[in-house]
């Protein structure tokens, strides 16, 4: 398996996801092939990067998040290529700022408002896996509760009512914020996102955007590993 991480000026979780995904790749079934185990970094000005099995848009503050989170990154040369490949079915994972970039490109529906608290929030949250029927969630059980950190100022996912209904109907909601019993309460929602949405797929479920950071809890030394199966599952599916 080969993976690329797009690095924008202001990305700051690029190395973190490289480490987490790389760990799963090295342990994965196809790890003997050359180049495996090391997702490559692709500079935002590079529209001509190698063919890969997975593209990751990392967290951070691409272009300083000036104008609007993800808005400028969506127009970078590398992103034009990411959109082209995604439309051909190459899987794309966007985490936090990467999710914001994905909505700005139109690869995923919806948009983001500042958190309901109007403050940055960094803490572990619980999310419920809405479906295990995807490349990204195949190593989880549907309905499973995960503990994963969030760290964002603008994670308040919004979409029109009819758009939300379509997401529900087509099973495009990947994760929702929940409490310990798996219930979607307002208290469990760290940012005010519509219907407690923490992550959404495109219609073909080849593109996933999520606000929580699975790469931050994929290592027991950091206090948890609930994020790891996401990467393990991707490696298993794409190797």
């Amino acid at each position: 398996m080969k993976a690329a991480i797009i690095v924008f000026p202001g990305s700051n979780c690029d190395r973190d996801v490289q480490v987490a995904l790389g760990r799963s790749m090295r342990a994965g079934p196809g790890a003997k092939r050359a180049g495996d185990g090391a997702p490559v970094m692709v500079w935002h000005k590079d529209a001509d990067f190698d063919k890969v099995d997975l593209i990751v848009l990392p967290g951070g503050f691409a272009y300083g998040d000036y104008l609007r989170c993800g808005a400028m990154a969506a127009h970078s040369p590398a992103m034009r290529e990411v959109v082209r490949r995604a439309r051909k079915g190459v899987p794309v994972l966007g985490i936090c700022n990467g999710f914001q970039v994905l909505t700005e490109t139109g690869l995923l529906p919806g948009a983001f408002l500042p958190n309901a608290s109007l403050k940055f929030v960094c803490r572990d949250v619980l999310i419920r896996v809405e479906t295990s029927q995807s490349l990204f969630t195949s190593a989880y059980e549907t309905g499973q509760t995960l503990r994963v950190p969030v760290a964002h100022h603008d994670g308040n996912y919004v979409a029109g009512e009819d758009q939300l209904e379509r997401l529900e109907a087509r099973g495009q909601i990947a994760f929702r914020y929940c409490d310990q019993d798996g219930e979607m309460t307002a208290q469990a929602n760290p940012n005010g996102a519509a219907r407690n949405i923490a992550g959404v797929f495109n219609e073909a479920k080849t593109v996933l955007g999520m606000m929580p950071h699975p790469e931050r809890l994929a290592d027991p030394a950091l206090g948890g590993t609930d994020g790891r199966p996401l990467f393990d599952g991707l490696v298993a599916a794409l190797s």
């Binding site: 190395r15 973190d16 967290g59 960094c122 950190p149 760290a151």
Partner: peptide, 16 residues
């Protein structure tokens, strides 16, 4: 206070 600070980026914060 500390929940307004990203205290986990770089994925090496072993003691929060």
């Amino acid at each position: 206070v500390w929940e307004q600070y990203d205290h986990m980026v770089m994925a090496d914060t072993v003691g929060r």
